[in-house]
Amino acid sequence: MNELLLMCTIAGRRAAIPAVAVQSVIEVENITPIPGTPDFICGLTALRSQALTVIDSSLALGIDQPCVSRDQRAAVVEVEGHLYAIMVDEAHDVGEARSEPVAVPGGFGDGWQRAARGMVETDGGPALLVDIPQLVSGPIAAAA
C-alpha cells in the first residue's frame, strides 16, 4: 500500500506511473528517428551509452495529438529487458498513492481504458495509473 507514484501529465490528463518502475526522469535531447515504425515510437535516444526507445505517451494511448512537452521530459522504464523513455507532457513530483487503483463505472475512455490500471487517489486529486507494458506496446497491439 501507499505505492510511490511519479505524477505526470499525459495528453492533458493527470496520470501516474509507478515510481518503482521508473529508473530516472530525463530530458530527451537528440532523438534518432526510425523510419518505418509506428507513430508512437519517436525514435532512439542514447543514455549513458545505452539506446532507449522513445515512446510518445499520448500517441501510444491512441490519442491523435502528439505529446506537447516543453522540456521533453521522459521517464525511463525497463520492460522485458528493453529500455524505454516514455515522453510525457510534464513530469511532476513523486507522490504517494492514497488508494488502490479502482475502476470507474463507464471507463476512462478508449485509449485510457486499455493502458490504465485504474484510478488512484493522490494528494493532488485522482490520477490514472498507467500500465507501462501496455503503454510501450502502443495502440496497434491493442487492436491485434
Partner: peptide, 18 residues
Amino acid sequence: KPIAPAIMETRLYAGTTL
C-alpha cells in the same frame, strides 16, 4: 543490441548500435 519488440515488428531492423 536488441531492439524493442514494437520496432522489431517493422521487420526492417535487426538491432541497434551506438
